[in-house]
Design a protein around this nucleic acid. Structure first.
Lengths: 113, 113
DNA sequence: ACTGTTATTCGATAATAATCGAACTACCAA
DNA sequence: TTGGTAGTTCGATTATTATCGAATAACAGT
């Protein structure tokens, strides 16, 4: 696959990150990855066309949020938390905490505990 | 003026907030407001057309990031930090801290006037 | 009422982004 | 080699956003 290009940590910008997270599908992907650590593209499509998902993954990669490595025919995705925390300490913690607590539009009003 | 409509705190969504912040102009506005607490629209245009700025302010208002109140002919804008912190505790702190620390693409350091 | 200031709204155009089928690549196994 | 699987890329279409001049509205002063 000629390994995907990922921006280096110091190339990340908040604008790109915010743009990547402004789409419900992508926010869902990020949220899922925050829970399971690593997942293939196929595990994350919600019955959506592969080409659409590939598009969203590319934006997440370009924003530096997600790292994709090919293992055979499947691609393992994971959040680049180490790089993100190095570049923007505390940011992802805050974002993920709020996203998991029902801050997203698309979905489940999650009850507190 | 028919006072601007502002979403209530519990209507805010992360998607809208991220979308609002994904534009360099709007991020700059938010950053500026974080420093000065309150400012008129005119103080925040960078020699850009008024209509463009009004557009951006509307998106910031719709996202719940900015509150605008009319005082005579001028409009005072301020960040809705109280509401934002109530809805998404820690989020704006993290975002503003990183944005002020050079996370923006424009990388234009402070320009004062 | 008239004038200047501040900002919003309208309307048209341009730029950017999302969607998705189809073709394609890479890989693995039989 | 054939076939199946996992993703990407291409290309066309649609949808959403941005930009900005012009018109409009609200207001303060004179």
């Amino acid at each position: 696959m000629r390994p995907h290009k990922h921006p280096s940590a110091d190339q990340l910008t908040l604008e790109r990150i915010f743009h990547a997270l402004s789409d419900p599908i992508r926010l869902e992907i990020v949220l899922h990855l925050a829970r399971v650590e690593t997942a293939t593209c196929g595990e994350l499509d919600g019955d959506r066309p592969k080409s659409s998902m590939s598009h969203h993954f590319r934006i997440l990669r370009d924003a530096g949020l997600v790292h994709t490595r090919a293992e055979g025919t499947i691609h393992q995705n994971s959040l680049r938390l180490t790089d993100l925390n190095a570049r923007f300490p505390g940011l992802m913690d805050a974002i993920l905490a709020q996203a998991m607590n029902g801050g997203t539009s698309g979905a489940k009003p999650k009850r507190k505990r």
